[in-house]
Amino acid sequence: MKKKSSSKDFVWRRKHLLGLKGMSADELIHLFNTAEGFKEISQRSIKKAPALRGKVVGNLFFEDSTRTRTSFALAVSRLSADIVEFTAKASSLSKGETLRDTARNLEAMGIDMVVVRHKAGGAANLLSQCIDACVINAGDGYHEHPTQGLLDIFTIRELRQDIKGLKVAIVGDIAHSRVARSNIWALHTLGAEVFLVGPPTLMPSAVSQLPVTVCHDFDSIIGQMDVLNMLRVQFERIGSPVIPSLLEYSRLFALTEKRMEKAKSDVIVMHPGPMNRGLEIEGTVADGPNSTVLRQVSNGLAVRMAVLFLVNQASKLPADERIDS
């Protein structure tokens, strides 16, 4: 799958990137191929491409984020577009302005694309329905974080010939994870076998209806896995009814050096960041030879450049050739 490029005349039709559910394998592969091209640019001495010159991108972050936000900002500037930074603190949101109002105001200032991070699931969908600009979901509630899912799979794809047939474990707080959901949909589409690992209290209510295998005993499956994607566990959940204690969580689900002994020697260890060293992942493992944590960050830039580039292309298509949802 890695080397197989989608046909030259493939046309990207999505004006928005709201989620990976429903995205076809062809679309995903086209996106990865586009990202490969952009990754190459990042390795040049002049790291800019003129693809989005004259465009304005709004970076709307209603929730704290460091790397996703910075990654998008850098991707925008590499594509020669202008970026308008917008944070909940600096915004009118505290004055009771709705997401819809805020977006319309930004659009009135001539914004072409909006990158949005919001704590409510569906916020990106809502935005896409009320403005003409392209909307890129940078994480909405527990719904989706499509660019994270894409960069995770792009990273796996760089290290393995084919996604199909790979066994990928996503470990941790699945219930509250948009990263998990985006990964599940796209990995499934590309033919990987997805395992969800964590306590039942951190599984979504309808996990049995998802295309995954659920496992509560990490040690029993770790040896079969090709990829271990360790999710961040929110500290506030420790000591709540869902996780009795940090010690117990670590014993059962953390990726420790000891546990790594059971894994395949070339297992890919991923983490979407920011990491809680010592909680879900031991520091030495996070920094160890199997870890792709920093590679994920570099790839995130290329993937986001590809997304910005493609949705902008789609926005120029006639309405009946475009996918607007």
Partner: peptide
Amino acid sequence: SGYQATVLGLPG
């Protein structure tokens, strides 16, 4: 709570 809440990422 159920399939749609799980997919939509909304608390069920």
